[in-house]
Amino acid sequence: MKYHLRIWRQAGPDKPGRFEDYTVDNIAPDMSFLEMLDVLNEQLTKEGKEPVAFDSDCREGICGMCGLVIDGMAHGPRRLTTTCELRMRHFPDGATITVEPFRADAFPIIKDLCVDRSALDRIIQAGGYISVNTGSAPDANAIPVPKPIAEEAMDAAACIGCGACVAACPNASAALFTGAKISQLALLPQGHPERERRVNRMVAQMDLEGFGSCSNHGECEAACPKGISIMNIARMRREFIRAGVRGA
């Protein structure tokens, strides 16, 4: 199969960027989107040109490293799919595909399609953890957790931190990411002692990083490769109001 690509090229963080057009041929339908870009890069290298920089790691949809905006959608047109798991058979032969980096001022472009998402790490560092003394591991079932609650926490914990929620949000808000990271701990008894401090610090860090505000468009949930629900954003707000009322 043959594709025409319109790819964002940018030499560095403060360099001007522009779209460049490329054509790739002999693409197998079962190739992933990233493998198709590998073919393009091989071609560019042979031509003595600079290959396109893009992020990837596990290439099996679990690490959260890859992420492109393909035809205006974070991770491309398929729902519940990371860019690395997106197959070329989902694009008609001869199609023109536009590829852009995740765009948000909180995600500065490093080069071409690579963006710096360490803002998300700093949100976690601000409070997305439980402080415990190290020692021997406690008994697995010493603290009973009802099954539905455990499942809800696991659903929130499915977040791989890829940043597609931010990329897809019209406001470049990180509310779904932050909401999921707060929820996975707020739902469990182990997360309760630090809950007020956690929500205040994580929300403050999220704002400090320059992410937008959530307007409840819900586009993040549609773009999330793990299908994380915006009900986690509602829970973040409940936690926030709870902390405010308690004067924490």
Partner: peptide, 16 residues
Amino acid sequence: ARSNRYAMYASKGGPS
């Protein structure tokens, strides 16, 4: 929060 806009932007539908 997004001073450089997307050249192309589309909704993914579903729960959006």
